[in-house]
Design a protein around this nucleic acid. Sequence first.
DNA 1: ATCCGGGTCT
DNA 2: AGACCCGGAT
Length: 576
Amino acid sequence: MDLCNQGEPDGHPIYNPEKRGEFGGVRMVGIDGVAQYCINFNTTNSFPDPPNSMTLSLLRTCLLLPSPLARINSIKIMPITRLSSKALPSKREITSAEPNPGSESSSGVSMPEVRVFVRKKRAKREVQLSSIEPKTEPLEQKVGPRTWAAYTLDGDVYLAVDVFCIRKLLPFCFQNHAFCQKLLLACGFVNIEVLCGLPDIEDFAYGKAKSFSRQTTTAVTSKDVSSMESKFLPPIRSKDEPPANWEKVLEGIQNMRSSEGAPVDTMGCEKAGISLPPKERRFAVLASSLLSSQTKDNVTHGKFKYSQSELFRIFVAIFFVSFDYKGLQTVLVLQVVVKESGALRVVVISIKSSFTTSAGAIQRLLQNGLLTPDAIDQADEATIKSLIYPVGFYPKKASNLKKIAKICLTKYDGDIPSTLEELLLLPGIGPKMAHLVMNVGWDNVQGICVDTHVHRICNRLGWVSRPGTKQDHVVPLRASFSLNLRSLKAVDDAILICVRQNTSTPEQTRESLQLWLPKEQWVPINPLLVGFGQTVCTPLRPRCGICSISDLCPSAFKETSSPSSKGKKDEKNKKR
DNA sequence: ATCCGGGTCT
DNA sequence: AGACCCGGAT
């Protein structure tokens, strides 16, 4: 039976944005030769937290694979069916069950582009519909009412929607503009306006489902298409395309981060001297940055502990993050330890009351009144050394600190330099610290502060690439779709060019990241990823098992080797 | 007992 | 690439 947008078929759940939490997840199931999509709602897993469950099942299906086309490969072709109560025909039947050409929205939408996408032939050849011949009709002529249909199969609920419906559904389900773009492009929809016209995804991502039903679709003309293409494509090429799902990934990390309390949260340099007057606070930030380099956060700072509310959030988050949750041991938390036994993931929160290590160097400096350039300039270097002692390289840092204090006094009137260039001139201040100080001390975002965590994680996620190794893929990919969409081989060839190589230095990472990451993320990305790196995506043996975005991560579960061999490590890091 | 993370400078 | 230096993990 047909379901129009808000219809509800007897006995079968259909997609309802307001109740999406009732579905364990959403899965792209199919795109068929007539440009229809199916979304499968798996009703067997019911989680109260829609984003997480969606993320998980999403990952397990569409986004598991590293290359864009590979992801798309996972989308299977489904017939358009109007029966909600009937099981879907088997794949083989599907091939023969051509979508009825006469029916409204769905039928006849086939176009060369779509077939290209029909990609899949590579996956299953029988899916190829002989009846589909390349046609050149413009898309808009074939699209009828925005409808969707639902049906069930093996307990799953499928939704078949037309291309305009998917335009609404996709951002809602995936909350990811980039993915939508890629998907639609890969399906041969070169109509950029459709892509550009997507509703504000953030509205969906953060729970404002209301606007969903009010979204209007805009008719598209071929004229629009060509004009959009001409002005849309060039910038994308030069700008570098954001990685698919980066927003989703970021959100997933944020969810994990909000619950896991990483050292950086309580000990980052931005916490230094938070109650001080601006000028002194800035110096505190600078000093804190200097000391913290090459030193664990909990050494530069004092101990930390979780508040009650944080504990609660940890508990809640772990519950949802651990998809295959088995059991929990609770209470005081400093560390989350994950053990995997078989398919089940057992999440254990281990108990550690506090760090018994030394009090924080910054705190000691502050207590001794040595957090101003003046005092440091006059203080004995040995005193400074002793106060900052446990931090790494303390002799050099004490010396640098004194030099910096002097410079601040003589050249900057006791304040710290206010430009990136001048900061870099200070001894012991490199690019990482300079950006951090600019961001935190001056609220002046000149660049992303890329430390080892950001560097590592961005590479693991495939978010950055060595210059010249990724742009190459975007261009041919788009070109093949927008110019001549019938050559499947061209598409595949284009994909093959997509060989991303890891950046080799943090500076490279910074430049690559800045190419696409929206500027409002430049500052938060650092504490976010640092904390993530401290608690989940650790350098050694990352805890992919508790990572809610592991299915979105091309590197998930790939680095499992034991830490003793370095030859192995090299292999690992080579490329994926 | 050994190795590793951590940023800068040489 | 290696030195610098510690705490922590293994």
